[in-house]
Amino acid sequence: MGKLLLATLAVFLAPIVGGLIAGIDRKITARLQSRFGPPILQPFYDVFKLLGKAPMIMNPWQVLTVWVYLLSSMLTVFLFFMGSDLLLIFFVMTIGAVFFVMGALSTQSPYAQVGAQRELITMLTYEPLIILVFVSIAMVTGSFKVSEVFAYGKPLLYQLPLMFIVLGYALTIKLRKSPFDISACHHAHQELVRGVLTEYSGPQLAIIEIAHWYDVVFVLGLCALFWATSAPGMIILLVVTYFAELVIDNVTARMTWKWMLQSVWCWGLALSVLNLLWLYAG
């Protein structure tokens, strides 16, 4: 019962936390670029404004798909805070990712199509890595359950340092940060317009943004698992990781999807295999 309450609470709080993280993100990014930056609450202003806009879409499927996307992201966060099965949670998140791409593909817009294809490539890139991260966690704790990670007693980071880097790759892709912001970057006006998001607008875009906040909370939650033994440890780990993400975002350029697929798979797999071998040896 306590778990259910916690999970329900998480579902209500996650968008607030996610939005605040996005706001802080924009503020720090601005500071890194010697700008003043928007208010911390800016992402909420954006989303509320979008909710108030008149609907303008290409077909009803888009409405269907964004709601399913939001639903799956909420369920992902719910299951995560229930301490449920990591692999199952990830597959639930896949529902949303797939529907999101389906909605973009359902439009006949060339920009959305290109963005959707690139989004599929990003999914192809990070999915195996996340599965491997879960497998390695399961090899350490003996179970895929989140609750077992907390029951384990030692920070996973000691045994899975390389897997944390692998998860970092996945995090960078999922946060849509450079050099992997290839599918929906809002700086790429000419080549992409807004990529996979081009044909979503107004309320639909707002829902996608909220779903994205849930996803961010989930992926950061995964990072936190690596230091599950103490709350300060978790927070330090998250702050350091997120700041590293911001620095990477600001010092790298957007690369091509080919480069992403090849380099991330090569490095991600190499690091995973090394780390898993180390586990075997140890």
Partner: peptide, 11 residues
Amino acid sequence: ARWAGILLSTP
């Protein structure tokens, strides 16, 4: 996923 998307593509 891309197959499903294509099936949906309609005005």
